[in-house]
Nucleic acid binder design. Sequence first.
DNA 1: GCTGGAATGTTCATGCGGTCAACATCGGGC
DNA 2: GCCCGATGTTGACCGCATGAACATTCCAGC
Lengths: 211, 211
Amino acid sequence: MPGISGGKNYHHGDLRNALIGAAVDLASEGGPERVVLREAARRVGVSPTAAYRHFDGRGELLRTVRGHARARLAEAMERAAAREPGADDPALAAERRLAALCRGYVGFAVDHPGLYRAAFGTVRPAAGEPPAGAPVPPEPEIRAFTLLRETLEALDRSGGRRSAAGAAAWSAVHGLSLLLLEGPLRRLPARRRDDVVETTLAMVVSGARAR
Amino acid sequence: MPGISGGKNYHHGDLRNALIGAAVDLASEGGPERVVLREAARRVGVSPTAAYRHFDGRGELLRTVRGHARARLAEAMERAAAREPGADDPALAAERRLAALCRGYVGFAVDHPGLYRAAFGTVRPAAGEPPAGAPVPPEPEIRAFTLLRETLEALDRSGGRRSAAGAAAWSAVHGLSLLLLEGPLRRLPARRRDDVVETTLAMVVSGARAR
DNA sequence: GCTGGAATGTTCATGCGGTCAACATCGGGC
DNA sequence: GCCCGATGTTGACCGCATGAACATTCCAGC
């Protein structure tokens, strides 16, 4: 293996991870559409086709980035929830946790727009890329969603349609994030943005309560 | 002008509209990323660069498609609301209208995925396309949003933070649509999908009530 | 140690998209 | 009738994804 004295000429030594790192950076900078195989290779200092030894093509690279981005989102949500003070009433605690998770979600989206978009946007074929023929593999667990669903379950006495409620909450934060990031709510001043975020969270919590 | 006896050889006669039509078709078939200048020109039977006489480039073509898509979405919402029976209680009527509008919104997204995505996705630069330097022009009125906001106002006695509530409702339906179309809720069976839609609508309505 | 196959990179070539500059054609006003 | 501006066409350049053929390196097995 390449030691400290850079013996890494022809063979890079850890190209796969290096490419992933570059691709994540690209996504951070400009979202999934900026994740371009050639540029990632360029940044790592390797020829474009080298990437094909480690990835099936741009699509797989992008999917890998998406996994990273989703993991980071979930971490951000958990951090936000951890900062939230508890409560004696378990229902109240669950409500607070729900709101905190949602705030963490939208906060991550706003702070890391490119990563967030990479996390949930469809992998769009780039120009010159064939229209994708392979059947899309099933989605692995998405921690961000699980966090929401579990908290809703804690809030739920009746036990009905839990997963649908989770999806509803998710819809709200996802839609809000996208409207703020790349939708018509872009360029909303920060003050009004907070308004919208809090109003949406109130809607989510009231929906969870009303169930 | 080109008469009935096809005198439209070198000069098309209505190329701009023809291109828009082709582009809308493309968006319907495969979403905004499929709206490709060369293909639109090909379908119209004209050389790629001819489009530049009528559009600033791919970006403007796509923006035009977006306008069409948004208009169609609003029409679908209004049709859905028109089908909804009224009610004596104006508040109840407003609630029903709100739910119907939302249902129309998500229904349009599900029925016309490509158009819906074209309506609200950011105009992403395609490969080979310069990274866009001009400042994005402000968004014109978006009728879909106005419909939601107005209905929420009718539901609103206190007169507070109306626009934020509209954005919250919009967030929910937008997020839901995208999760269903290109997000992890894709391939949800129709039965469960309806569940999620109704649960989300309940959340929206309960949020509007709780205000 | 030495060596030959497997890994890992490189070069070259193809095809698709966006866009520009230079040239061709048409239609209508004068 | 003629000329100009609007509208199309050709040809070229650049970036991207991807595949085939070739080069280099590493390491397992001797």
